[in-house]
Design a binder for these strands. Structure first.
Ligand SMILES: [Zn+2]
Ligand SMILES: [Zn+2]
Ligand SMILES: [Zn+2]
Ligand SMILES: [Zn+2]
Ligand SMILES: [Zn+2]
Ligand SMILES: [Zn+2]
Length: 606
DNA sequence: GAGTTTGAAACT
DNA sequence: CAGTTTCAAACTC
């Protein structure tokens, strides 16, 4: 029945072929420059990853309350249940492990509230009134974190009520063992379903349980799929769904603001998050802060910048069989890694080992080179006068600077560099639509962090500028109000930026791909489901394709092996990355089996 | 900020 | 497992 309505999905246009065809490209299509800002876009939620700040990671070790990672150490084979959630509690089997204090979870709390200047990042706060924050209704609880700074009433989701909380956790798990696991799963070769584009690599992301929307068309945040920025899948039982590829309605949403890029990015993030690793996203939108709603183009909204990322919180993951080692750790949201540090076990992002500082450096160098060349080229060409540069510039990434993947410093660096490019020198977005004139406003130009400067900028900056134009250089020139010259410069910069960013993007795509690969290996468990999404395109009928994807197999031990331990495959990455920069586009997946540890698919057909 | 809408979570 | 109630967020005004 659900479908009674018409089949929901395939709304009318069965074939939007065009769209479909290019499917993946929906928005960005050619330009896609997926922006990388890992961070959250605006601020609200954005963060995809952890609720906390990476920066402080060190400090915060806090596993979420629930999670508590520590204790668990390794559950051997425990199938589902998790002991995980429980915080430590009483007797940890291995006291020796570290006394982490039971309260461990708490850590995160405080600091988030505004730490830094501009972007406060906070963890989201709930406003529960009748659940005591001990039910999944509470986002905090659902996310596995203690309430901190929330506006809840009679809150028991805190250290003081740990016992109650624990009990609630147990009850919740009883109802749904996957209640605290990330909910969006992604699988590498998408079967064509939701591959939110991750660049070349296709990533299929979908909500494990699917939504059951009836009136929102799945285009409002009421819909979990939409909120997570993923398309509805066959797991969904929604009515009149418009959240599918090719949906005009959906497209309209993006279209409005340039958020498209962001959107993409987000998708990428989501993919990364889900797929690769980090557990989920972290924080939901903050809320109250900005008034408009987050919808992309909301009615009054003014702040377009939003976008949230996938923020889902809890949820399930692989259900069934898969005890997976990976999953076990999960709860702790990524952010904590640092905390865990000591124990070997911490959950690390799959990407963690992929990138190393030196790689970053190399990357920066490469980019610098490109930049220089670009500048040169432009100069020559400048006569031609093509202004199209602005075409969109995908570079608006200046957007934020805050969080990002928790990953490691690498990320910081990367990000930093991006920021520099964008915000530091040229006034951030060069020509974005509306903003084109805003040069003046640059107010936003945030000063970059010192670290950032130190890291790259000096050289790069200089180079960049020098090559491009002697003029702006000085660093403070942002005021730029597009003067005549400025304009020229702007173009040049734009182009330059475009080039650099493109390269960087490629690199990141590769990284994503690697991560996926890794992930795939790790969990060949494959997700189960069938994989497809509802797909509008074909419409209901269809389906035809059975997706043969890999389906699942229980993850075997192999996973355990590899997953748990960090795998150093970095060098490869470096290589790959480098290559990428060089322009060799590697197609997608580099090499499948490099190590050969695991075999990818075990597929079984139905 | 108050009031409405919405769909997940909880409950029966 | 379906139907209903509860709940807090998303959204509207
Ligand atoms: Zn709450
Ligand atoms: Zn709370
Ligand atoms: Zn609370
Ligand atoms: Zn929906
Ligand atoms: Zn859905
Ligand atoms: Zn839907």
């Amino acid at each position: 029945m659900e479908q009674g309505e018409g089949g929901d999905f395939p709304p009318k246009k069965t074939q939007s072929d065009t769209t479909v065809a290019t499917a993946t490209l929906d928005f960005p299509a050619k330009k896609l420059a997926r922006q990388l800002d890992f961070t959250g876009f605006g601020g609200p939620s954005a963060t995809l990853v952890l609720p906390e700040h990476p920066q402080q990671a060190a400090t915060h070790p806090l596993p979420p309350p629930p999670a508590q990672t520590i204790t668990q150490m390794q559950p051997p084979p425990q199938p589902q249940q998790q002991l995980l959630m429980m915080p430590i509690q009483s007797q940890a089997p291995h006291p020796s492990v570290r006394p982490v204090k039971p309260e461990s979870p708490r850590a995160r709390p405080r600091q988030n509230a505004e730490v830094k200047d501009g972007t406060p990042k906070k963890q989201k706060q709930c406003n529960c009134k009748h659940s005591r924050c001990l039910k999944l209704y509470c986002e905090c609880f659902a996310s596995g974190i203690y309430c901190d700074g929330c506006n809840c009433a009679n809150c028991h989701n805190n250290v003081e009520n740990e016992a109650a909380r624990r009990e609630a956790v147990e009850a919740t798990l009883e109802r749904n063992p996957n209640a605290f696991r990330p909910k969006i799963a992604s699988s590498p070769h998408g079967t064509r379903d939701n591959r939110e584009e991750a660049g070349e690599a296709l990533v299929s992301v979908k909500h494990n349980k699917g939504c059951h929307c009836k009136k929102s068309g799945c285009l409002k945040k009421y819909c979990e799929c939409f909120q997570a920025n993923i398309l509805c899948s066959e797991n969904c039982k929604c009515m009149d769904c418009k959240n599918f590829e090719g949906s005009e309605e959906r497209q309209a949403l993006f279209h409005g603001d340039h958020s498209s890029m962001a959107y993409i990015q987000q998708a990428a993030n989501a993919a990364i998050t889900g797929a690769i690793g980090s557990s989920g996203y972290g924080s939901p939108p903050i809320s109250k802060k900005r008034k408009g709603q987050d919808l992309f183009f909301g009615p009054t909204s003014k702040d377009p910048s939003i976008h949230r990322l996938a923020q889902f919180q809890q949820a399930n993951h692989i259900k069934a069989s898969a005890p997976s080692s990976l999953s076990s750790i999960p709860v702790a949201r990524a952010g904590n890694m640092a905390a865990l540090g000591p124990s070997k076990f911490t959950y690390r992002s799959l990407l963690a080992d992929i990138i190393q500082p030196q790689d970053l450096k190399e990357l920066c160098s490469v980019l610098v080179v490109y930049s220089g060349e670009a500048a040169k080229t432009l100069a020559d060409r400048r006569n031609a006068t093509e202004k199209q540069a602005e075409d969109s510039m995908e570079t608006s990434l200046a957007s934020s600077t805050q969080d990002r993947l928790q990953s490691q410093k690498e990320s910081d660096i990367e990000k930093a560099s991006l920021d520099d490019y964008s915000s530091g020198n040229q006034a951030e977005k060069v020509g974005t639509d509306e903003s084109s004139s805003d040069g003046a406003d640059v107010s936003k130009g945030r000063p970059m962090s010192p670290g950032t400067l130190a890291l790259m900028c000096d050289e790069q900056d200089t180079m960049l500028m020098a090559a491009a134009s002697p003029k702006l250089m000085g660093h403070g020139c942002n005021t730029s109000s597009q003067l005549p010259c400025g304009q020229v410069m702007a173009e040049a910069y734009a182009e330059q930026e475009r080039i650099v960013l493109t390269k960087f993007r490629d690199c990141l795509n590769k990284l994503i791909t690697l991560g996926e690969i890794k992930e795939t290996k790790c969990s060949s468990l494959a997700r189960t489901e069938s994989g497809g999404q509802k797909d509008p395109v074909s419409n209901g009928t269809a389906d035809a394709r059975t997706e043969t994807t890999n389906q699942q197999e229980p993850l075997s031990n192999s996973i355990a092996k590899s997953a748990v331990l960090p795998t150093p495959r970095m060098s490869q990455m470096a290589t790959t990355a480098t290559a990428a920069f060089n322009n060799d586009p590697l197609p997608k997946i580099p090499s499948p089996a490099e190590n050969g540890d695991i075999k990818p698919k075990t597929e079984r057909e139905m």
